[in-house]
């Protein structure tokens, strides 16, 4: 016997959560784009697509975030902080790769400097993931020690029943338990058959890749130029990536007052490492692509013990010149370490 949330109860659940002061988010699809957005009714959800075009990162680390307002006076500078938002949220229907992405970035944003915007939003959000029953050719979680039913980063994991009848509920954290207390009486016991999870074939052997990346001789390998010759440095792989977390701090305003903002930035851009002198240590696009791979699979795991990639495949899915993590790592896995 397992605890089940039947699909026809979902509208009730949403109403209860909203009544309890939670904003409910989930995968939503419009004519133009799919993303995680606030919803009001069960019918607003898009459970059909493999995954939303935009990653869950948007809800925790927006493209632009005001940090402080400043006013320069005769003898002083007044500043006023923008407090991190205080909005209790439940994100229903997160994909396991997106939830894992959050857990990956927790290690960075909670590291030496505590990023209060990220941490506050994480503390105020309950992540309810749904195991994937569908995948496409770009999904690669299984190559990264994850799976279509990974629970990493989730507060509750739901396993879909056959015929979209509902989900088996697995509470994983206190936060998840608390959120589901509010709807406890809408859950039922049952033994309905669970739908099989998506098949995501392994695309490369990660350990082989990591060994190659860790060999210093390969830093200057010709491989980097060959594999990235067609990269146009558009950066959209990093902007859609749930785990890419680089940002730039900018002051916007006039001479005497303005707003300091935290804006996304990307190692795919030439400007990312440009020095004031004009010297650029990553002068070529291949050096930038190498940084992206090295950071995700060598430097980041070296520091935090986890890869900075959760295998969502967005980078490859939308790259205008059909590049991506998979092609690069597949090729690396065939090279001599």
């Amino acid at each position: 016997m397992t605890r089940i949330l039947f699909s026809d109860k979902l509208d009730n659940c949403i109403a209860r959560w909203r009544a309890a002061g939670l904003t409910v988010f989930g995968p939503v699809k419009t004519d133009t784009l799919s993303s995680y957005a606030a919803i009001e009714h069960a019918s607003d959800f898009d459970f059909e697509s493999v995954l939303p075009d935009r990653s869950i990162k948007d809800l925790f680390f927006p493209q632009t975030e005001p940090m402080l307002r400043y006013t320069i006076k005769k003898r002083a500078i007044d500043t006023e902080d923008f407090a991190p938002p205080n909005d209790k949220r439940i994100i229903f229907g997160a994909r396991p790769c997106d939830a894992s992405g959050l857990a990956i970035d927790d290690s960075l944003f909670g590291w030496d400097y505590k990023d209060e915007y990220w941490i506050q939003r994480r503390n105020e959000s309950v992540i309810v993931s749904i195991a994937c029953t569908k995948a496409d050719d770009f999904c690669l979680c299984s190559s990264l020690n994850l799976a279509p039913d990974s629970s990493t980063g989730s507060d509750v994991l739901l396993r879909p029943l056959e015929n979209n009848k509902g989900w088996v509920v697995e509470e994983l954290t206190d936060r998840g338990h608390e959120a589901f207390l509010a709807i406890a009486e809408l859950l039922q016991d049952g033994s309905d058959p669970i739908a099989p999870i998506a098949a995501v074939p392994e695309k490369f052997d990660l350990d082989t890749c990591v060994a190659w990346l860790q060999n210093h001789d390969n830093f200057e390998s010709k491989f980097w130029k060959e594999i990235s010759m067609r990269c146009i440095g558009c950066g959209s792989c990093t902007y859609l990536c749930p785990t890419c977390h680089c940002f730039d701090i900018q002051d916007e305003g006039d001479t005497y007052s303005g707003i300091r903002r935290k804006n996304w930035d990307s190692c795919s851009f030439a400007l990312f490492t440009m020095h004031t002198s004009g010297h650029n240590p990553r002068a070529t696009q291949s050096a930038r692509w190498r940084q992206r791979i090295m950071h995700k699979f060598n430097y980041f795991p070296g520091k935090f013990n986890v890869n900075s990639c959760s295998g969502c495949g967005r980078c490859s899915r939308q790259c205008p010149v059909d590049m991506g993590i998979t092609e690069t790592l597949q090729k690396i896995s065939t090279l001599q370490p």
Partner: peptide
Amino acid sequence: KCYACRQACPMCYCRRCIVDSNQPQWINTS
């Protein structure tokens, strides 16, 4: 503001795009 449109465009070849000029910053980066 990923500027993928610019990067993909064969006519956007400027070595330094006006949005990347920051002395002064003509265009907001946000």
